[in-house]
């Protein structure tokens, strides 16, 4: 099992002819991801790393039977690209692009109401089901198949956490970077229920950050509905108080947002709090180690 992406994922890359799109297409192909098509308006008929390029998402879907897309297009054009993917009813849209205007994402979320698509990102590293499918920009070789899911707001900190898990002999079911922007396609609360229902996932590592309310919302859900063990690290415990302007942000967050407050509500919800970023692998191992290894946690590492 695993969630959202696996061997059956047939991926499009929107913005495949751009520098980042082309580079990561190659890396995803190296990971054996089925990249079946690319989209760049006006570049239809060409190829990138042997992948056929189409002018529109709809055309690419019709021709290739794609069921997911990775969006690499520049921020100015991201909104139109995402809308095209929603209209083509692609079940999974992963937006890697950084710098998408917040109101564009508000408009996207409105369009997603009742739509057939789920969106991950923007401004995220993407997601990976180790050994099966990589949709994004994370280094593939640090991952290993297994039973621990990783949900994170960060990029490189997630890689570090995954690396620690792999070193500790704990493989991963699916690792998802949800992105660092104010308005996201999917937050922790949208993904935790999928992991709770996934037979392969035995535990969840949640990596949060100061600011926003993603961790607080997650804590409420964990308390009410998540029975699998959750381990949480929140970055920014030592961050200085934000220099800010006006009061609306503080009012809307209800005074929440510091790492200490986030850790307190997550602990209260039953999550195990990891204090040091260097102790993520060790802590999960100490708590579960043997408990899940017989349940199918593959410990052999993929060679780089």
């Amino acid at each position: 099992m695993s969630i959202l992406v696996d061997r059956n994922t047939r991926l499009l890359v929107q913005g495949i002819t751009g520098q980042a799109g082309a580079f990561h297409t190659e890396k995803m192909l190296e990971y054996q991801t089925a990249v079946v098509g690319g989209v760049t308006p006006g570049k239809g008929g060409s190829q990138v790393h042997g992948v056929p390029v189409f002018n529109t998402v709809q055309e690419a879907v019709t021709q290739t039977g794609a069921n997911a897309t990775a969006v690499f297009v520049p921020a100015q054009f991201a909104y139109a690209a995402i809308l095209e993917a929603i209209e083509a009813k692609l079940p999974l849209i992963v937006v890697i692009t950084e710098g998408v205007p917040t109101l564009d994402m508000v408009r996207v979320r409105k369009r997603l109401e009742g739509a057939a698509s789920r969106l991950i990102g923007p401004n995220c590293p993407g997601l990976i089901t180790p050994g099966q499918c990589k949709v994004g920009i994370m280094p593939g070789y640090i991952h290993t198949p297994g039973a621990v899911a990783v949900l994170s707001r960060s990029g490189t900190l997630t890689y570090d956490a995954v690396y620690q898990l792999t070193e500790a002999g704990l493989g991963q079911s699916t690792c998802i970077g949800i992105g660092g922007d104010p308005v996201l396609g999917s937050s922790f609360v949208h993904l935790l229920p999928l992991l709770e229902a996934d037979p392969q996932t035995k535990a969840v590592v949640l990596i949060g950050e100061i600011g926003g309310t993603e961790e607080e919302e997650a804590a409420a859900l964990i308390k009410a509905r998540i029975r699998k063990p959750v381990f949480a690290f929140v970055a920014g415990k030592m961050a200085p108080k934000e220099k800010r302007m006006g009061h609306a942000g503080a009012i809307i967050a209800g005074g929440k947002g510091t790492a200490a407050e986030k850790c307190a509500v997550l602990r209260d919800a039953g999550a195990t709090i990891i204090e040091s970023p260097a102790a993520i692998g060790k802590t999960v191992k100490a708590h579960l180690g043997r408990a899940i290894l017989p349940g199918g946690c593959v410990t052999s590492r993929r060679s780089p």
Binding site: S152, R153, S154, G155, T156, L157, T158, D160, G180, I207, E209, I210, F233, A235, G236, K237, M238, A239, A259, S276, P277
Partner: peptide, 8 residues
């Protein structure tokens, strides 16, 4: 995220 974690 890693930068914040490093400060921590």
């Amino acid at each position: 995220g890693l930068a914040m974690a490093t400060n921590d």
